[in-house]
Design a protein around this nucleic acid. Structure first.
Lengths: 333, 333
DNA sequence: TTGAAAGCGCTAACAC
DNA sequence: GTGTTAGCGCTTTCAA
């Protein structure tokens, strides 16, 4: 593979000149440039990115750390990140953390040794202190779905509490008289906020009790389990707000298995807006996040910072909207 | 961030020595080593991977090129690849090609400039010539789901035709008298093979006609569309073998919408074995591939080759097995 | 067992 | 406008 030296030699110029035409900076004579370009073509020369990275400490690579790509939410998110990165000539490394902090820690170590230009952090077990470490290393960071006190990194999230309120209001509006909540793991801020939104709406209603809140791990099986426990404890429940779509899908399965009709006997609403909510029967009402936009914004903003186009850290809260589908399509009042 | 020089200086040795203890090669005195190690700890020194890569032309990074991560099949596959890579200290770059050959071409260019150690190619629009180019560049390659004449790269695939035969036999065994096939895009070898498997079984049956084969793009909407066309042309169809699970899900939706009962009136079988086949109602019978194993094998084998543990190219054909579920659970004969 | 020094391929300050 | 050259941080001969 040809090097910059080969090009320089053959074009009868110095490597500096070649470098200049490559990077379009500094003055260079039109003729010289043309000659160099010609040689580049002839030799099918491609600059060696690694050497470049070593020289200027930029790799053109960002990393995306997420819990697991198996969750469709993160599939879509990472698709957005990769599309956006590609559009800016960046490459993305992807990391499944399973929300394990040791793993996240290891990744960060590896990534900084690799001169990764920036990190999008969509996994949340790492404490602020650890994130601070990344910042000290001067590596730009965008975190998803967190609220950070310390201001040195950008945050993008959805209006979780508001979305949850929309969901519960909708369930009530369609006639539910007792609405339960299947909650995600409370270590996660998204799960907390959605629970809070649920509480906001129901806390003063006379039928509300704490036992209407069940843990569901943000997973299909978690959703199933929660429904089983729920129906046993509260046979009169007629509305369920699941903290994410996977749990809603699990809930739907469990209800079906127990012979409980959705939406006739129990209305069901999820959160996230993953494509699979349209795969079930009935289709699932859900509070949709702007998943793709979230990923795209995160990536583009990160790259802006990497490239020094901005040094503003961003704190964005994206809208959510209720998509009404069969799982809540009942009588209206 | 400390460099190898800092360590050398502080430990009172040369950088060469530090390098030796780092890489555990060459002779180095026990005491010296201890001293160096101590300094490394003190300085919290981490070797710079980029510099290392430049020096020895290995980056510890592999790339995974796939059509799109939004297809759950590839989510699981990439999860396997990343897990396996991580277990060997490798990092993975991921690329959504949308099966666009220009995009694949671009990726390959970028990747080789980045000194990527190896590529797993799960997207198949690129011709063999292009793949040959990669080989000439000496970069190890594992392709998924192809049959290549030219032997310089490893191939891993599933027994697609056999799986298809299993599917159709199963449909017939459960009482279907007229089985249609929703086929994937015929540029893809997997789609071809599954169609071939279908043909193998039905070609001599008296009810068979070409119009029982419908294109479905390997997508949900494709599956829906195919079913609509199918029911119109062949109202008496009572079995459908979809070339992948997404199409099967789409088919199920369409059948439901048309008021056709599954499995009572039409039995339905998919292919792939993605998790979502358990999310529908009824759950989908499917020919399951060993998706995770496929990804894991690909990654581990690739890394073996990168590290020179083997120079054998591999040609593996993984088993598939039928998972019988509600969508075909009818009378048996 | 250790060190000096020549790369790996490119960038960028500095000189002409 | 263009060339020289000193890095970027590490590996690896080759001598000592």
């Amino acid at each position: 593979m040809a090097t910059i030296r080969d090009v320089a030699q053959r074009a009868g110029v110095s490597v500096a000149t070649v470098s200049r035409v490559l990077n379009q900076n500094g003055y260079v004579n039109q003729d010289t440039e043309a000659r160099v370009m010609k040689v580049i073509k002839e030799l099918d020369y491609r600059p060696n990115t690694v050497a470049r990275s070593l020289a200027n400490r930029k790799t053109g690579t960002i990393a995306l750390i997420l819990p697991t790509i198996m969750n469709p939410f993160f599939s879509e998110l990472s698709r957005a990140v990769e599309d956006s990165a590609r559009s800016r000539g960046f490459t993305v490394i992807f990391c499944n953390s399973d929300d394990l902090d040791t793993r996240e820690q290891t990744y960060i170590d590896v990534l900084r040794q690799k001169y990764i230009d920036g990190i999008i952090f969509a996994s949340s077990s790492l404490g602020e202190e650890d994130l601070a470490v990344i910042n000290e290393n001067g590596i730009p960071l965008v975190v998803l779905d967190r609220a950070l006190r310390e201001g040195n990194c950008s945050v993008i999230r959805s209006k979780n509490a508001e979305g949850a309120r929309k969901a519960v209001h909708h369930l009530l509006a369609t006639g539910c008289r007792k609405v339960a909540h299947i909650a995600g793991p409370q270590e996660l801020i998204t799960a907390q906020e959605r629970l809070r939104g649920y509480r906001d709406v129901v806390k003063d209603l006379d039928w509300f009790e704490e036992s209407l809140i069940l843990p569901g791990q943000f997973s299909i099986t978690g959703g199933k389990g929660a429904v089983q426990a729920l129906v046993e404890a509260h046979p009169d429940v007629d509305g369920i707000f699941a903290g994410n779509d996977l749990m809603a899908i699990g809930a739907l399965k469990a209800l079906h298995r127990m012979g409980i009709k959705v939406p006739e006997e129990v209305s069901l609403c999820g959160f996230d807006g993953i494509g699979a909510t349209e795969w079930t029967e009935p289709e699932l009402t859900t509070v949709a996040q702007l998943i793709y936009e979230m990923g795209a914004r995160a990536a583009l903003h990160l790259i802006d910072r990497v490239q020094g186009y901005t040094d503003q850290v961003e704190d964005l809260e994206l809208d959510v909207h209720l998509i009404e589908r069969g799982s809540t399509r009942r009588r209206k009042y």
